[in-house]
């Protein structure tokens, strides 16, 4: 376990965080520290506490005990209204995209720009920012559509655009590839890597697919070629990826890819196989 003492470079710090829902344990004494520019991949079975972990990070769920520090600010004792400023620094892609189905794609992506208390840009620039964010995920032609007209993969991409339109320094992706075919899933991961490598976003990916983590750990987005390329040498070291395996709300593994693949624990090695 890393030393969870906060430095000015730490983006997310969890210290002995526990969360229960009645008898069920969602998180059990979870501690870790994520630094600026890192990529963290959380793996685990359904119900192992991954989604709740994201929600605690976002301040949507208050843990029963422990301390959570985001960008150097302790959030566990903050009220809902004080959270908005911190949340505006985090982009979050929800499990099923959670697009507002009564709004158009443009309104969906513009929502954080219009509603966050931190002003990101003037009213007249909102449209440009939305188009730019949608172009990033290659969906700039769907502005006037509503979410129900889009496929699952496209909705996920709109979700990414909405999460990153404010250019947040931290992005959390909750199961970005769940329920998608492998080709679409790889596409989605490419956009996440692109966001990370072009904007320098600290990225947290929650998934049950090991391939997603492998992609994030071994590839980077090359702007000149406009696609993901395999990272080697210095480049590979720069893609600083940590893997975490969770089980029943506990962290059972935390370390780099090589250690994960070498693990002999039957549960952990299940996630370390490609």
């Amino acid at each position: 376990m890393p030393d969870p003492s906060a430095t000015h470079d730490s983006v997310v710090v969890f210290e002995d965080v526990s969360l229960h829902f009645g008898e069920t344990v969602a998180l059990d004494q979870v501690s870790f520290r994520i630094d600026r520019g890192q990529t963290w991949v959380f793996l685990g079975e359904a119900g192992s506490g991954k989604t709740q972990l994201c929600k605690v990070m976002m301040g949507l769920v208050r843990p029963d005990s422990g301390r959570v520090t985001i960008f150097g600010e302790e959030i566990t004792s903050k009220g809902e209204r004080d959270m908005f400023a911190i949340r505006s620094k985090i982009g979050m892609l929800f499990q099923e995209s959670a697009l507002f189905d009564s709004m158009t794609i443009e309104e969906n992506v513009a929502y954080p720009l219009e509603n966050q208390p931190v002003r990101h840009c003037g009213r007249e620039q909102i449209h440009d920012r939305v188009v730019e964010a949608l172009r990033f995920v290659e969906l700039e032609k769907t502005l006037d559509k509503v979410p129900s007209e889009l496929s699952g993969g496209m909705r996920r991409r709109v979700g990414i655009a909405r999460a990153t339109v404010t250019a947040p320094p931290l992005a959390i992706y909750d199961s970005p590839t769940a329920g998608l075919d492998p080709i679409t899933a790889n596409n989605i991961m490419a956009f996440i890597a692109k966001q990370r490598d072009l904007k320098g976003t600290t990225s947290i990916i929650v998934s049950h697919r090991y391939q997603d983590g492998v992609l994030m750990a071994n590839y980077y987005y090359d702007e000149a070629q406009g696609r993901l390329v395999a990272a080697t040498g210095d480049r590979l070291a720069a893609v600083d990826t940590t893997f975490v395996v969770m089980r029943d709300g506990r962290i059972v593994f935390l370390g780099p890819q090589t250690e994960l693949e070498a693990s002999t624990d039957p549960y952990v090695s299940k996630f370390g196989r490609r």
Binding site: R81, F94, E96
Partner: peptide, 17 residues
């Protein structure tokens, strides 16, 4: 329906009460 599809959480995440 908004609650079960996480739209309520998304609302909070994106800056509205």
């Amino acid at each position: 329906s908004m609650k079960v599809t996480e739209q309520i959480d998304a609302m909070r995440a994106l800056g509205t009460d």
